[in-house]
Design a protein around this nucleic acid. Structure first.
Lengths: 263, 263
DNA sequence: CGCTGTCTTGACGCTGCTCAAGAGCGGTGG
DNA sequence: CCACCGCTCTTGAGCAGCGTCAAGACAGCG
């Protein structure tokens, strides 16, 4: 079953974890074994439901997914974006049933990793355990940045900051060029990420477009001048913890190596 | 040096971790060994500074501390509250230099746990590793709830929600009665937690007081009717993951066992 | 006693919300 | 073919929640 899948030298998961931990060939082979065709989901279809215990964890292989919570009168807050190489619910191993939902954003394929396979990765191999722990800590770091974004920035800077992150995170996993990437979220979704209304999102995107900061067509984001967009919203990529060398084939990630952590 | 400190049957750290993992006497003894008089810090004094590599981790023993970030023009977002039994920077083991600051909120005492002691807890004893991992995942879960709180609730519900969490978290570690707890934050701090201005905090507290939902005196919060405050802000304690039995001496935590996870 | 920090209140204005209408577009079926 | 639908996006008008600026009350403390 596994045999017909060639073991790739690199995939989004390996590309990402390489930023946190030095992986050897054995690690890479194990990770490549996880990353294979999974089941395909429709947009908006739930992957993880709050309160339901999960058997194993889920890994996004292709497409986008998102975490969300429903509060009070049915309002939705989107808590995070998941792209290829991201685990949905690694925390459920320790924490039990999830406290939030995860759903497909685009059509997307997900691999269900059974419990025993997770255990063998996490509790037997300490370097891989560290790599996965690193990934969950980066997720937490992103969450902190989102909180600061919501609490302290005006709506236009908030959107710009989200776009900077979106572009960079896709560059990390090799899914974006230097100036453009996928942007599959609808405006109602952007609203639920940023804590503003759909209507306001529309107006702000008009303004960002007319300022020449971004271009949006065909569910893609184009940023003519990344430095200008970053300056506009005070984007500092430190929180993504891309400390290690990007490796052989990361063309896009290298471009911002100089400008992190100002004093 | 350790000998003159009696090993207590319970301390805030043990009380908290008990909710995540079943601890045996050996675990408890190890955790009790961590929990001893540390150095004392003044309010506002930094414990962890962003960008600086840490040797070991820090554990809050007494008093309150808080995480924060500075964005753009000097605005501050408070990212979390730390109380006795909380680790400040367990993530620095894997993630390296912190991406945010941690400072004392009240006068507070902190134990510096050296790197080798952390390693012996995390990488040798898998049950304690799991317990500490559980604690960091609960921190992440709280972060998600804060994000939903900021994004989707009006300012008055936001404050009420924070107060519900504050009361419950102090009850967990045995530092609060059923209806009141410490509330050491000034109004400018509440503003930086909730993403609103000091002046607005003042007005909303006036309203909550006049509604009879809360009373604030001498840096303490008193909630005459916890159920009413929870209903007001739609507080659901599921996200704190208090799934296990509260244990022998948790008087306050038991009172809300029935009302979590509504369908 | 006057300091300083915290909290309070008022007046006014802007960001962002609500309500409402309409345009563009792909899918579907008569 | 066109009518009809549902979804996404856009724009306008009016309003309110919350921010800004300014002044003052109060307590703790040297």
């Amino acid at each position: 079953m596994d045999a017909f899948v060639a073991i790739p030298r690199s995939n989004p998961l390996i590309r990402k974890l390489r930023h946190g931990v030095d992986l050897d060939d054995g690690d890479r082979a194990l990770l490549a074994g996880l990353f294979r065709p999974g089941r395909t989901l429709e947009p908006q279809q739930d992957i993880v439901r709050a309160g339901e215990p999960a058997a194993g964890v889920h890994l996004v292989v292709e497409g986008f997914a998102f975490r969300y919570k429903l509060v009070g009168d049915g309002r939705r807050q989107i808590l995070g974006l998941l792209m290829p190489g991201d685990f949905c619910d690694l925390q459920s191993i320790v924490l039990g049933p999830s406290d939030h939902y995860i759903a497909a954003l685009t059509a997307c394929t997900v691999v269900d990793v059974p419990q025993d396979k997770v255990d063998s990765l996490v509790f037997r191999d300490s370097r891989l355990a560290r790599a996965l722990w690193w990934a969950t800590l980066v997720d937490e770091s992103i969450l902190r940045e989102w909180l600061a974004n919501m609490g302290q920035r005006a709506a236009d800077r908030r959107i710009a900051h989200l776009f900077c992150e979106l572009l960079l995170r896709q560059q990390i996993v090799g899914a974006a060029g230097p100036n453009d990437c996928a942007m599959p979220m609808t405006q109602p979704m952007l609203a639920d990420i940023l804590g503003i209304t759909t209507i306001h999102v529309s107006r702000i995107l008009r303004d960002l477009r007319s300022e020449g900061l971004v271009r949006l067509q065909d569910r893609r984001l184009h940023v003519p001048d990344v430095g200008r967009l970053r300056a506009f919203c005070d984007f500092d990529p430190t929180y993504l913890h891309l400390i290690r060398q990007p490796g052989e084939e990361d063309e896009a990630g290298a471009s911002m190596a100089g400008e992190r952590r100002r004093p």
